[in-house]
Design a protein around this nucleic acid. Structure first.
Length: 425
DNA sequence: TCTGGGGTCCTAGGACCC
DNA sequence: TCTGGGGTCCTAGGACCC
């Protein structure tokens, strides 16, 4: 049977979440900022109409914000994650199988649906249900491959005439739409590849769909080759219903103010280790390898302020998910790359080389003393932090004041969850 | 002054082995 | 004197995504 996918994508998701609890802002331009209130990461339709671009640094639009009374929010991920899970749960009730692709979008398998109900009607049903139950507006794109469903969704958002649903199962409609869209709008085609495609006189999505596969393969990786097949309605990407366990876990942040002292950096790195290990345990993995990295600001003037960035990796004797094992290693690694005299802007840690809990390779010369691994203790720590506040219990290494922590001056309240942010002290 | 964070996949090239 | 070549594993880096 011919495959049919739908892509359901929330409109202006973060901005919509903020607006939902502030009816007074219904017609106001709203933007949501990245961590440290650095860049714009979401815009309401009114903010888009003012010409505010995605990813623009907040300080560059200050004037515009004041002039038009734009309301800005620090990102409140606890709120967005909670709203997201409500949307996804609703979607699961409406469709046989879904793949949660990101916090605000999901693929749905609609294969066979058109025999009982028109695809467009089904799309409309999804829209109204999610809007009525959750209060979030979504758009739906329907097509025989994921890449085309993405394009259909793009069209549903762009053209109000579509009323939020575009059915692109028809080949003629596919070609008509692709001819109108620049190749850069295709899923998987980023700025670098767009530039090279343009040099090959490939400008629209249709140009790419019609490009000879052999030629594309000789210039790019198999990823681009697959994209061409997908644009031609040949589905190469399956619906991935169960999320795979992560293969690496990163915890990193930019600092609200530059860090110059090793003791502060040790605290920050310890905090990242703490968070990364929490994530590691939540997916029931153990890790062998830890990387610590740090850097000064890449945006400052190199003449007055030299740039320095470095990283160091190390391994445990065997896999663990005990925070203390990694705290110990992190400190050793940090001392390898720490250099006095720089103003550090960002640092972080990365866990890699994962093993499932309970699977442990026997090492000939390693004894139990090499690791502090204590699953029972860590389970208790996680449980207390989940039930009470996020930082009820922690290891003293990460510091109690955290005067380097991030700036979130414009944070909305915890409308739906018991905690929303680490309070800045 | 102020510029996010967290992931995945693919490829090229080096190391190593037989 | 003659100094191969193929396979595999690992890693760093590039490119993409939201």
């Amino acid at each position: 049977m011919e495959k049919v996918f739908a892509l359901v994508d929330c409109n202006n998701f973060y901005a919509s979440c903020e607006k939902m609890f502030r009816p007074d802002l219904a017609d106001t331009a709203v933007v949501v900022l990245s961590n440290n209130d650095g860049c714009v990461v979401a815009r309401s339709k009114e903010a888009k109409a003012l010409g505010i671009k995605m990813g623009v640094p907040y300080f560059q639009i200050r004037e515009l914000v004041e002039k038009h009374g734009v309301v800005a929010f620090s990102s409140n991920y606890a709120l967005y994650a909670d709203m997201s899970s409500r949307v996804m749960t609703t979607l699961e009730q409406l469709a046989p199988s879904i793949e949660v692709y990101s916090i605000d979008e999901a693929f749905v398998d609609l294969t066979g649906v058109d025999s009982c109900l028109g695809l467009s009607e089904f799309g409309q049903q999804i829209r109204t249900t999610i809007s009525d139950w959750i209060g979030i507006k979504v758009c739906v794109g329907i097509a025989p491959s994921k890449t085309l469903a993405k394009l259909a969704n793009h069209a549903a958002k762009k053209w109000s005439k579509a009323e939020g649903v575009v059915d692109l199962t028809d080949r003629v409609r596919q070609r008509k739409l692709m001819a109108l869209l620049p190749v850069s709008e295709v899923w998987g085609i980023g700025s670098r590849i767009t530039k090279r495609l343009n040099e090959m006189h490939i400008y629209t999505a249709l140009d790419l769909a019609d490009a000879p596969t052999k030629h594309i393969r000789s210039q790019f990786s198999v990823v681009v080759e697959r994209t061409v097949s997908e644009l031609n309605g040949d589905s190469c990407l399956r619906l991935e219903e169960v999320a795979d366990k992560k293969k690496e876990i990163i915890s990193s942040r930019s600092f609200s103010e530059r860090i110059t002292q090793l003791s502060q950096m040790q605290e920050a790195i310890s905090e990242y280790v703490h968070r990364a290990c929490e994530k590691l345990r939540s997916q029931k993995s153990n890790a062998m390898q830890l990387t610590v990295f740090l850097r000064t600001s890449p945006f400052s003037d190199r003449q007055t302020e030299p740039y320095y960035a470095n990283s160091a990796s190390g391994e445990l004797i065997y896999p663990s998910n005990d925070t203390r094992d990694f705290l110990h290693l992190a400190n050793q690694l940090l001392s390898k790359i720490w250099k006095e005299g720089y103003r550090y802007a960002k640092s972080g840690v990365m866990l890699t080389d994962f093993y499932d809990e309970g699977i442990r390779q026997q090492q000939l010369f390693a004894d139990e003393l090499g690791s502090r691994c204590n699953p029972a203790l860590m389970a208790v720590v996680d449980q207390i932090n989940q039930q009470h506040s996020r930082n009820a219990i922690y290891f003293a290494a990460k510091g109690t004041r955290q005067n380097w922590s991030m700036k979130r001056d414009l944070l909305s309240p915890a409308y739906t969850t018991c905690w929303s942010a680490i309070p800045k002290v």
